[in-house]
Computed example of a mutant assay.
Amino acid sequence: MKNMLQPEHKRALISADTKPSFWLLHSLGWLFYVLILTIDNVAFIGSDKLDDRFVIFPLLISGLLAILLTLPLRSLYRRLWCLSPVKLFISVVVSSLLVAAIWTPLKNMVIWNWEDNYSIFLVLNGQFDEEHHPARLFMTISYAFFMVMAWSSLYFGINYHFRLVKEKEQHFNAVMLSHKAQIKMLRYQINPHFLFNTLNAISTLVLQGSKERANTMLIKLSTFFRYSLDNDPEKKITLQEELDALRLYLDIEKTRFDERLTVHFEVSPATEKLLVPSLIIQPLVENSIKYAIAKMKSGGEIRISARCEQDELILQVADNGPFSCFSQLPGMSQGVGLQNIDERLNVIYPHQHQFELSVAQPQGFVVTMTLPVEHSLE
């Protein structure tokens, strides 16, 4: 089994920004419209009927009318959100045109009253003159329609953006929860397998009358499982903690195999504080014991090494079992063995790890894991 995927940069976590207040954006948007019109009137058009300093007042009233008239569109658009794109577009156009048809005459009446001293009450009573014709109340309706359509576009654009971000965040969280569940499932597959082997060995010791050894083995087994259950399988621990757990496991196995098993640790001090998935080495050692040491009558050795090369942590478990080629491999990749570890690494380090099985010299096998370097915060 071999996984030679090239490492990639970690993707940044997706998180939805806080959505701005509708009232804030609604008010600021129309106030900005008033500001732009004021600058246009004062700087470019000018006014010979009114002091330029006061031209902002009718424009402010026009902006307030726009704020009030476009407010109902918010409730309307919420109801229309699930329509098909074509129906939604038609609805928005018709609604914007209706608002523009109401806003334009009201705005023009305010301007007539302010600039021409033509009373709004004269208009309401139907008293028009040549300069102030009823049709002229709807002048600039196309401009008003454009402004309301711009408001509608911004409303949908902003809401679509934050809905999309929220959906991405929900999808990301769902994937993370799925990965966590998968990690737990894969990690917890180890315990029943190891428990069966150990209890079988304890039963044999009891039948042989070795009660003290059986009791010692039970104590070590309970200590190991307490350690295992206290560590969340989705979290990472330091390599030193991982090796401590591994030594608990090996103490149990040495009780089973006695002098048939010798373990050598070659761990660089620089790697001891680096983070690794919990109980990631123990299944590899268990495979070596099951498929190599258990087949030997004496002289069984397992070497566990850890070193750093550039930004990578290299972990190796090697044995001197009786096998010297892959054709002799008795299904080590099945069950809770190498396949389990490979799946866990694929979940925890997607595209950022290597997992390789090779033949040792003169015999045996070497399992190599290459992981990204992660430093403990402690």
Rank of each mutant, 00 (worst) to 15 (best):
Ile141Ala: 11
Asn340Leu: 12
Leu122Glu: 10
Gly321Met: 00
Ser27Ala: 04
Leu68Val: 04
Ile280Thr: 06
Gly63Asn: 12
Leu243Val: 04
Gly29Lys: 06
Ser203Glu: 14
Val285Tyr: 04
Val367Gln: 14
Pro362Trp: 08
Cys325His: 12
Met109Asn: 01
Asp51Ala: 12
Leu218Lys: 04
Val347Gln: 07
Phe172Cys: 03
Met109Leu: 02
Ser47His: 06
Leu274Gln: 02
Asn125Leu: 14
Tyr291Trp: 01
Glu343Ala: 15
His171Thr: 13
Asp129Cys: 03
Leu154Trp: 07
Gln352Ser: 09
Ser333Thr: 15
Asn159Ala: 13
Asn231Ala: 13
Phe156Met: 10
Asp311Gly: 02
His132Pro: 05
Leu315Met: 02
Ser376Cys: 11
Glu8Gly: 05
Thr271Asp: 07
Val99Leu: 11
Ile280Tyr: 01
Leu88Met: 09
Leu24Gly: 08
Ile314Thr: 03
Ile183Cys: 00
Asp342Ile: 07
Leu28Gln: 06
Glu356Val: 15
Ile281Gln: 02
Tyr188Arg: 04
Asn41Trp: 09
Asn125Ala: 12
Ser333Val: 10
Tyr227Thr: 05
Val110His: 09
Ser358Ala: 07
Leu275Lys: 03
Gly126Lys: 03
Val317Met: 09
Asn3Gly: 11
Gly300Cys: 00
Leu80Phe: 03
Gly335Asn: 15
Leu199Tyr: 09
Ser142Cys: 12
Ala318Pro: 00
Arg74Gln: 09
Ile237Lys: 02
His353Asp: 01
Ser298Tyr: 06
Phe156Thr: 10
Phe194Met: 07
Asn191Ala: 14
Leu239His: 01
Asp48Gln: 10
Ile61Phe: 08
Leu69Cys: 09
Leu24His: 04
Asn346Lys: 14
Phe138Trp: 13
His133Lys: 06
Ser96Tyr: 08
Glu301Ala: 13
Pro277Leu: 06
His375Arg: 15
Ser203Gly: 15
